[in-house]
Design a protein around this nucleic acid. Structure first.
Length: 1047
RNA sequence: GGGCGCUUAGCUCAGUUGGUUAGAGCAUCUCGUUUACACCGAGAGGGUCGGGGGUUCGAGUCCCUCAGCGCCCACCA
């Protein structure tokens, strides 16, 4: 059947609609139909309110996994809902160039496959290769999103490195540079010696390794009588001593020790038992230090103030003793070697004490000329040599074994070396403050609110943002430099630049320059170009300036994403209409890196916050509780799930799991393509390119297959049974629709008079109204799981199990057929709209089928249903359908009674078609409620209600069940079926339960304080409940007697 | 070291402001092809709500504490 064409209504045959939703053929067809009709498109339309979401641009490092699947499902649910609610909804798609990550991936492959480094290729060739990689993965990523049903406006797809984003980056950099908010500085950076680039703190992870703690002795130069001849220092990185420029000691060691002791004693007061020993140990240690070390330390401090020096061994360089509070007398020897160029803390000391900073490393991690005879060695080799040589000199002391937290680069997995280098920084002061204010004032609201704290704390530190990266893939810094200039050279160069400035920038200024004096007293000059301009660039280079080879941190361009994608710095109509965007949906690990920076850059560039709400969703963890990531290899490709379960099941399954506080644990299995058996994914096998099936021994490939041999094998999908529920639900909906469609062949809608409707119809309308309100509210507040559960329960337990069942008999009654058709068509129609944002494909397919047999739908008046549920209006709540508590109560009672009858039937093994006589004992009020339900009960439970009311009595061959909370006793005549023994077992068990409950209640009610303090209503309920239980006990006891008599 | 979560059935998770007998899906067991659906239907079994203490008439829910797991931030010469 083709879905999207308008054909005249024709009878539907049973065989026309398969019993399973065929997502594999339906999804591509529907996707195409949406595209053809422009359903995803958003345009500036002043008559409508805009609703905008910018996608968190996935990195082009690799394919998407289920974490992205969740992120994008949640965005799409929201966008589709708002679109249906009448907003001009724009979902802006795109990808991120992910500077260091992407370059690292491509470089690694280059090494593995061709044994080449980036230097073998050169900058242009490498960058061209990365573009190729980007094209390949961008296509794959966008394809994944499309198959998931993401309703992005694809024509607007952006890339953080495309021309439009580049223009925004250039303009931002230029503006910040002009305001001196971007500056050049020497800073200690985390140096990745493998990738030969600085990486940010955020790209560093710590790993505990077995290391040593070496003690050295440095000789004091010209020790006077009574003074120590040596100072002892200790380090975990001996080779850095080559860059030592001082040895520090605390300025007032006695006071420092006192302070520590005071703190320890405070701790002692409210310490737990088990900690006491440890603290006391520390206090004892302090005492020893006071006696043994303190005099020496005080003497050393005096010597330092006296500008005394020690001799750095091996290099025979005299270095000063300095005083600095960083040297803590309570630790180690109390003295600390200072290596400003290779340790963050030492760097601070170096700055405070005005020490020289000697960098002993080359960019590749080998030692440079500063290291003297050790020049050219690797760090590892140098370390061994330094230790051996010091030992030979007799200046090596104790060597302790110690666990060391060693920083590693997240990208190359190699150890980080702190390294002094020239870098560009963004000054965070006022920028950070604006982003703090935005969240404090709730101009930007973060959900769940607990994530506000991390955001505010991080920004509160206002640490300047190092933005240069020694990479080739990214936005090259738009700065041209000339260094080591004399003052007069600098002056004449500046004049030439001023000339260029007036020649090229009529109107808007597009070039600016700054001069500054470097640490050696020379001048350097920077020129910044605002936009790409080949001629101007050539002119700048012609007067001798050289472009900075570095590129910008990826987050610099990501920070501009909400406005750069809409055309900023141009004043576009799009920007004016769609910006600020509405909601950002992302994961918690980039709240600071990305969200905070978008807020401050958005405010800086546009004067407005980039979005008013941020929703942080849970993370998807694998079966071992680890987050999914490309680098770990435990990522599951959403396409595998889609192939097996369908896109709707993927989406519904993810939404169902996306609760507020809990991350989603997702154990996965490989599915062998040969024998279809499932193989648990483990730490060992999760990143293998091929696996031999343990069941059928045949090999299959995985998503990591790269070699041709592996790729030619059959691919083993990674699946999770956690999507079965959702897949089954999709099919349940499909079949409810199938039933409806098969009964709409002669659809003749009639005008509905609500008051005259039968009970079950009024109930359905009430429930639809309630569910509509619930789902709307849940989605508004990002409670996706609640929306999914609410729809699941209603669709399955109420629409399918009750309403459809009740409709069966009414369809065969000519008097009721038309009305039932009208209502069920309306019910299905509403359900499809409500489910569409979560399950777009199956709802769209059913919508098309429904449109053919029932092109107009509605209650008060018939309305032409449009061709797409995607573009249909979101259901609204009609007040006439809400608040009828009587009907809800009637159905609640009905379902209880129905359950009781079924339970009795099942316990006695009564065949489904056998009608059983039923007698219902209840009070007069319940009779009124229940009487209209009798026909439904009879049809659904295959029961025959022979008596109802206070006077109704038990049967001679009775199997009863009491519903104490409702005050109803259900009696079923089991004359023909009864299994006396089984029944006795059941009754005895039941009696036991009742007696237990009675005991609990009696205890409760005999508790004087409960009766006097609990609210009256609670006490009354308990009393009534006890009374009911007692009555039930009586009747069960009677029944047991009766049953024993039958024996 | 600081911060934020989490711990409920065999598994994966819900559980609104404290209030009848703590729920769902999967798995298990029993029964059933009944005119949409076996990716289905009916029913059953399965819980000291991580341990301990407290507040309260009443605690899965609030407070304290201990233990375990996870994440974020800082730091360790």
């Amino acid at each position: 059947m083709t879905a999207m064409t308008n054909q005249p209504a024709e009878p539907i045959e049973d065989s026309d609609i398969p019993t399973r939703f065929d997502h594999a053929t339906a999804a591509p067809r529907i996707t195409q139909a949406w595209l053809d009709a422009g359903c995803n498109r958003a345009q500036v339309d002043p008559s409508r309110k805009p609703f905008t979401i910018c996608i968190p641009p996935p990195n082009v490092t690799g394919a998407l996994h289920l974490g992205h699947g969740l992120n994008n499902t949640l965005q799409d649910v929201l966008v589709r809902t708002r679109r249906m609610q009448g907003f001009e909804a724009l979902w802006m798609p795109g990808t991120d160039h992910a500077g260091i990550a992407t370059q690292a991936v491509v470089e690694r492959r280059l090494k593995e496959q061709e044994n080449k480094t980036r230097h073998d290729l050169g900058r242009d060739t490498l960058v061209a290769r990365i573009w190729k990689w980007k094209d390949q993965y961008e296509t794959r990523i966008l394809g994944q999103l499309k198959r998931m049903g993401c309703s992005c406006d694809w024509d607007r797809t952006r890339f953080t490195l495309d021309d439009q984003c580049a223009a925004a980056v250039r303009a931002t950099f230029y503006d910040l540079f002009s305001q001196r908010l971007i500056y050049r500085g020497k800073r200690l950076v985390n140096w990745d010696t493998f990738l030969q680039t600085a990486v940010s703190d955020d790209e560093v992870f710590n790993e505990t390794t077995q290391g040593h703690f070496w003690h050295f002795y440095y000789q004091v130069i010209g020790p006077k009588r009574g003074e120590p001849a040596m100072v002892e220092i200790a380090t975990t990185r001996p080779e850095t001593m080559l860059g030592d420029t001082a040895v520090a000691v605390h300025p007032d060691p006695a006071a420092a020790l006192d302070a520590v002791e005071k703190e320890l004693r405070l701790k002692l007061v409210d310490a737990a038992e088990k900690d006491l020993a440890a603290i006391n140990g520390q206090l004892a240690d302090l005492e020893i230090r006071r006696r043994t070390m303190l005099p020496t330390l005080i003497m050393l401090a005096d010597m330092a103030r006296d500008h005394r020096q020690v001799m750095l061994p091996l290099l025979d360089r005299a270095i000063p003793l300095v005083v600095d509070p960083w040297a803590k007398p309570e630790l180690g020897s109390g003295c600390v070697k200072i290596t400003p160029a290779h340790d963050p803390n030492d760097y601070e000391v170096g700055k405070r004490c005005g020490l020289p900073m000697i960098n002993v490393l080359r960019t590749d991690g080998t030692l440079n000329q500063e290291a003297g005879v050790y020049q050219g060695l690797t760090i590892k080799a140098a370390r061994e040599r330094v230790v051996a040589d010091l030992d030979a000199l007799g200046q090596l002391g104790e060597v302790e074994d110690r666990e060391i937290e060693l920083p590693h680069s997240d990208r190359s997995k190699t150890p980080i070396e702190p390294f002094l280098a020239d870098q560009w920084f963004v000054k965070m002061d006022s920028l950070a403050q604006s982003a703090i204010d935005a969240v404090s004032s709730e101009a930007v609201k973060i959900f769940p609110t607990r994530y506000r704290k991390g955001y505010l704390d991080w920004l509160g530190e206002k640490r300047d943002w190092p933005v240069s990266r020694q990479l080739w893939w990214g936005h090259q810094i738009p700065i041209w430099t000339s260094e080591k200039l004399t003052a007069s050279d600098a002056k004449s160069l500046a004049a030439k630049i001023a000339a260029l400035q007036s020649a090229y920038s009529a109107g808007e200024s597009s070039l600016t320059h700054q001069t500054e004096v470097d640490e050696d007293g020379d001048n350097r000059l920077f020129v910044c170009l605002r936009a790409e301009n080949a001629k101007l660039q050539a002119a700048v280079e012609a007067i001798g300036l050289v472009r900075d080879p570095d590129v910008l941190d990826t987050w610099f361009s990501s920070a501009l994403w909400p406005h750069s994608t809409l055309g900023w710095p141009e004043k576009t109509a799009e920007l004016d209409y769609f910006y600020p965007t509405s909601t950002l949906i992302t994961s918690r690990d980039i709240i600071t890196l990305w969200v905070a920076r978008m807020v401050l850059m958005g405010i800086n560039n546009t004067g407005k916050v980039p979005f008013s709400e941020v929703f942080i969703h849970p993370k998807i963890l694998d079966g071992l509780g680890e987050t999914m990531s490309k680098s770990k290899g435990n990522g599951v490709d959403p396409i595998d799930i889609i192939d097996k379960f369908g896109p709707d099941a993927l989406r519904f399954g993810l939404a169902w799991l996306a609760t507020e506080t809990q991350d989603v644990r997702m154990p996965v299995q490989y599915e062998c393509p040969h024998c279809e058996k499932l193989i648990d994914q483990t730490k060992k096998n999760r990143s293998l390119p091929r696996i031999d099936c343990p069941h059928c021994s045949q090999p299959f490939s995985t998503q990591w297959a790269e070699s041709e041999a592996d790729k030619s094998l059959h691919r083993g999908a990674v699946v999770s049974e956690r999507f079965e529920t959702a897949r089954n639900f999709v099919n349940k909906l499909w079949n409810a629709a199938r039933f409806t469609l098969l009964n709409l062949d002669d659809y003749q809608p009639i005008k509905i008079d609500r008051a005259a409707l039968p009970l079950e119809d009024r109930w359905l309308l009430t429930r639809l109204a309630t569910v509509t309100a619930e789902v709307t509210d849940a989605i508004d507040h990002y409670r996706y799981a609640e929306a999914a559960r609410s729809l699941y329960d209603f669709a399955w337990d109420e629409f399918c199990s009750l309403y459809v069942e009740m409709a069966k008999s009414r369809f065969s009654d000519p008097a009721q057929r038309a009305a039932t058709q009208t209502i069920i068509a309306h019910g299905l129609d509403t359900l499809l709209r409500l489910l569409h944002p979560i399950m777009p494909f199956v709802t769209e397919d059913i919508w098309a089928h429904l449109g053919k047999v029932a092109p107009t739908r509605g209650l008060d008046k018939q309305i032409e249903a449009g061709p797409f549920v995607m573009r249909a209006p979101w259901p609204t709540v009609d007040v006439r359908d809400t608040g009828d508590k009587t009907i809800e109560k009637q159905f609640a009672v009905f379902r209880e009674v129905l359950g009781a009858v079924r339970q009795i039937r099942s316990s006695q093994n009564v065949p489904p078609r056998e009608s059983v006589p039923v007698s219902l004992v209840c009070d007069a009020a319940t009779v009124v409620l229940l009487t209209p339900m009798i026909p439904l009960l009879e049809s659904i439970a295959t029961a025959n209600v022979v008596a109802l009311g206070p006077q109704a009595t038990a049967f001679a061959t009775d199997v009863p069940l009491s519903l104490p909370s409702l005050g109803i006793d259900v009696h079923v005549d089991m004359d023909r079926f009864i299994d006396v023994q089984a029944e006795l077992v059941r009754l005895e068990r039941l009696l036991g339960q009742i007696i237990k409950q009675i005991t609990v209640k009696e205890q409760k009610l005999s508790n004087e304080s409960f009766v006097s303090r609990a609210p009256e209503q609670v006490v009354a309920t308990e009393r009534q409940s006890l009374q009911d239980l007692k009555a039930q006990r009586q009747s069960v006891t009677d029944d047991i007697k009766k049953m024993q008599n039958r024996k």
